[in-house]
Protein backbone atom coordinates (compact mmCIF):
# COMPACT_ATOMS: atom_id res chain seq x y z
CA UNK A 1 0.00 0.00 0.00
CA UNK A 2 1.53 3.25 -1.12
CA UNK A 3 1.89 6.19 1.20
CA UNK A 4 -0.61 9.06 1.05
CA UNK A 5 1.33 12.16 0.04
CA UNK A 6 0.32 15.78 -0.50
CA UNK A 7 -0.20 14.94 -4.17
CA UNK A 8 -3.12 12.66 -3.32
CA UNK A 9 -4.85 15.52 -1.53
CA UNK A 10 -4.23 17.91 -4.40
CA UNK A 11 -5.71 15.42 -6.87
CA UNK A 12 -8.72 14.70 -4.66
CA UNK A 13 -9.46 18.39 -4.10
CA UNK A 14 -9.09 19.10 -7.82
CA UNK A 15 -11.64 16.38 -8.57
CA UNK A 16 -14.03 17.79 -5.96
CA UNK A 17 -13.56 21.31 -7.30
CA UNK A 18 -14.26 20.26 -10.88
CA UNK A 19 -17.36 18.31 -9.85
CA UNK A 20 -18.58 21.37 -7.94
CA UNK A 21 -17.87 23.79 -10.78
CA UNK A 22 -19.57 21.54 -13.33
CA UNK A 23 -22.53 21.19 -10.98
CA UNK A 24 -22.97 24.98 -10.83
CA UNK A 25 -22.70 25.27 -14.59
CA UNK A 26 -24.84 22.29 -15.63
CA UNK A 27 -27.49 21.60 -12.98
CA UNK A 28 -30.72 23.58 -13.08
CA UNK A 29 -32.15 23.05 -9.61
CA UNK A 30 -31.22 25.95 -7.34
CA UNK A 31 -30.67 23.69 -4.31
CA UNK A 32 -28.27 21.45 -6.25
CA UNK A 33 -26.45 24.54 -7.51
CA UNK A 34 -25.98 25.60 -3.88
CA UNK A 35 -24.67 22.20 -2.93
CA UNK A 36 -22.20 22.40 -5.80
CA UNK A 37 -20.98 25.80 -4.61
CA UNK A 38 -20.48 24.30 -1.15
CA UNK A 39 -18.47 21.52 -2.73
CA UNK A 40 -16.19 24.05 -4.43
CA UNK A 41 -15.60 25.81 -1.12
CA UNK A 42 -14.91 22.51 0.61
CA UNK A 43 -12.45 21.48 -2.09
CA UNK A 44 -10.52 24.65 -1.25
CA UNK A 45 -10.86 23.87 2.48
CA UNK A 46 -9.44 20.40 2.00
CA UNK A 47 -6.50 21.83 0.13
CA UNK A 48 -5.89 24.45 2.82
CA UNK A 49 -5.85 21.84 5.56
CA UNK A 50 -3.66 19.46 3.58
CA UNK A 51 -1.14 22.18 2.77
CA UNK A 52 -1.26 23.38 6.36
CA UNK A 53 -0.30 19.91 7.58
CA UNK A 54 2.29 19.52 4.84
CA UNK A 55 3.95 22.88 5.47
CA UNK A 56 3.68 22.64 9.23
CA UNK A 57 2.05 26.03 9.83
CA UNK A 58 -1.46 26.81 10.98
CA UNK A 59 -2.44 29.75 8.76
CA UNK A 60 -4.34 27.49 6.40
CA UNK A 61 -6.37 25.89 9.16
CA UNK A 62 -7.28 29.29 10.57
CA UNK A 63 -8.57 30.32 7.16
CA UNK A 64 -10.67 27.15 6.96
CA UNK A 65 -12.53 28.12 10.14
CA UNK A 66 -13.41 31.45 8.59
CA UNK A 67 -14.47 29.83 5.33
CA UNK A 68 -16.81 27.42 7.14
CA UNK A 69 -18.38 30.28 9.11
CA UNK A 70 -18.79 32.52 6.09
CA UNK A 71 -20.17 29.66 4.00
CA UNK A 72 -22.88 29.10 6.61
CA UNK A 73 -23.90 32.76 6.38
CA UNK A 74 -23.81 32.57 2.60
CA UNK A 75 -26.09 29.55 2.49
CA UNK A 76 -28.56 31.22 4.85
CA UNK A 77 -28.78 34.16 2.46
CA UNK A 78 -28.97 31.87 -0.55
CA UNK A 79 -31.84 29.85 0.88
CA UNK A 80 -33.69 33.05 1.73
CA UNK A 81 -33.34 34.10 -1.90
CA UNK A 82 -34.61 30.69 -3.05
CA UNK A 83 -37.70 31.13 -0.88
CA UNK A 84 -38.26 34.58 -2.42
CA UNK A 85 -37.82 33.11 -5.91
CA UNK A 86 -40.26 30.30 -5.14
CA UNK A 87 -42.87 32.78 -3.90
CA UNK A 88 -42.75 34.85 -7.08
CA UNK A 89 -42.26 32.09 -9.67
CA UNK A 90 -43.54 28.88 -8.01
CA UNK A 91 -40.36 27.16 -9.17
CA UNK A 92 -36.71 26.99 -8.18
CA UNK A 93 -35.47 26.09 -11.62
CA UNK A 94 -32.56 28.40 -12.53
CA UNK A 95 -33.80 28.50 -16.14
CA UNK A 96 -36.97 30.32 -15.08
CA UNK A 97 -34.80 33.34 -14.21
CA UNK A 98 -35.10 34.73 -17.69
CA UNK A 99 -36.93 38.05 -17.35
CA UNK A 100 -33.77 39.95 -18.24
CA UNK A 101 -31.65 39.16 -21.24
CA UNK A 102 -29.15 40.88 -23.49
Amino acid sequence: MSEITINSYVILSTILFVIGALGVLLRRNAIIVFMSIEMMLNAANLLFVAFSRHLGNLDGQVLVFFVITVAAAEVAVGLALIVAIFRTKKSIDIDTLNLMKG
Partner: peptide, 27 residues
Protein backbone atom coordinates in the same frame (compact mmCIF):
# COMPACT_ATOMS: atom_id res chain seq x y z
CA UNK B 1 -35.51 38.73 -6.75
CA UNK B 2 -34.11 37.48 -10.03
CA UNK B 3 -31.28 40.03 -9.78
CA UNK B 4 -30.52 38.93 -6.23
CA UNK B 5 -30.47 35.25 -7.16
CA UNK B 6 -28.30 35.74 -10.22
CA UNK B 7 -25.89 37.92 -8.27
CA UNK B 8 -25.71 35.29 -5.56
CA UNK B 9 -25.08 32.29 -7.82
CA UNK B 10 -22.47 34.00 -9.99
CA UNK B 11 -20.90 35.76 -6.99
CA UNK B 12 -20.59 32.62 -4.89
CA UNK B 13 -19.13 30.79 -7.88
CA UNK B 14 -16.52 33.50 -8.46
CA UNK B 15 -15.64 33.55 -4.76
CA UNK B 16 -15.26 29.77 -4.76
CA UNK B 17 -12.83 29.93 -7.67
CA UNK B 18 -10.92 32.73 -5.95
CA UNK B 19 -10.70 30.74 -2.72
CA UNK B 20 -9.31 27.75 -4.57
CA UNK B 21 -6.70 30.00 -6.16
CA UNK B 22 -5.81 31.31 -2.71
CA UNK B 23 -5.38 27.76 -1.40
CA UNK B 24 -2.97 27.00 -4.26
CA UNK B 25 -1.05 30.20 -3.53
CA UNK B 26 -0.85 29.25 0.14
CA UNK B 27 0.30 25.77 -0.78
Amino acid sequence: VEAGMKYFVYGAFATGVMLYGMSLLYG
